[in-house]
Simulated assay, not measured.
Amino acid sequence: MKNITRGIDHIGVTVPDIEEATVFFKKAFGAKIAYDNKKLEDEPLAGPNVEKTLGLKKGTKVIHMRLLSFNNSASIELFNYVDADQRKPSIASDLGVQHFGFYVDDIKEAAKAFVEAGGELLNDPGELLGDVEDGTGHFVYGRAPWGMLIELISYTPHGLNYPEDSEAKRFTP
């Protein structure tokens, strides 16, 4: 089968306040604003077409959208909705996307920046576990100020213990 996928372009994240989320991502991960798809001062995106296109509940309005860029990585598209019945952020055992990981060069410095930006670590950074990753690096999970789960991870790409029958190598920025 022909490979028609190049990689992940962006990840969509709903936040309560795009300006505050932008400050967090800038301080914690060096994000840069690429552009606003929809500015806060613009008329909200709403109505049956928007609801159908984005799979929204009736009456939900998009009031702000922004794309953030990161060095050597996929972008994050931030969304802010109003008139929506929103749930709390998922935890690791929930179905669907429950976290994403930032590859970092220095786990201790990255963890410090994460906390200084307003995030909360769930524990101290620890060694990677499991047959493939055991002893090759470090990781830690934390929550962004609005509660979303984010992983910080650092490993030696050539040090991973890939099985002989592995079809691919892990992408590393």
Rank of each mutant, 00 (worst) to 15 (best):
G135P: 09
A111Q: 08
A92V: 15
K57Q: 09
K112G: 05
V23R: 14
L128I: 10
H158S: 14
P44D: 13
V13M: 14
Y155T: 10
L122N: 15
V62L: 14
I107N: 01
F171K: 02
E20Y: 03
F171A: 09
Y162P: 11
E41I: 12
Q98H: 14
S75D: 15
D106S: 05
E127H: 01
M148W: 10
K58Q: 13
T172P: 00
G137A: 04
R87E: 15
L95H: 13
L128C: 02
A34P: 00
D105K: 15
D106H: 03
S154C: 10
L56S: 03
N3A: 09
A111K: 06
M1P: 08
I107V: 12
P89M: 02
I63A: 00
P145S: 09
L121D: 05
E109W: 01
I153E: 09
L67M: 12
K2S: 07
D42C: 06
D17I: 10
R87Y: 07
V82I: 15
G101H: 10
K58G: 05
G119H: 07
L54G: 01
D42M: 10
L152P: 06
A31I: 13
L68W: 05
T60N: 02
A111W: 06
G126P: 03
L121H: 01
A117N: 09
F70L: 07
G12Y: 07
Y81G: 06
G55C: 04
K58W: 03
Q98C: 15
I11N: 03
L149H: 04
G30R: 02
I63M: 00
G47E: 05
G55L: 02
D17L: 07
R66L: 08
N49H: 11
G12L: 05
K88P: 06
D105W: 05
L45S: 12
S90W: 02
E133P: 00
L78E: 11
E133F: 15
Q98G: 12
E120H: 07
F70C: 06
S90L: 12
H10I: 03
E51D: 11
P163A: 11
F25S: 02
I11H: 01
A110I: 04
G130T: 08
W146A: 05
K52L: 14
F114G: 04
F139R: 00
I150F: 07
S90I: 06
V97R: 00
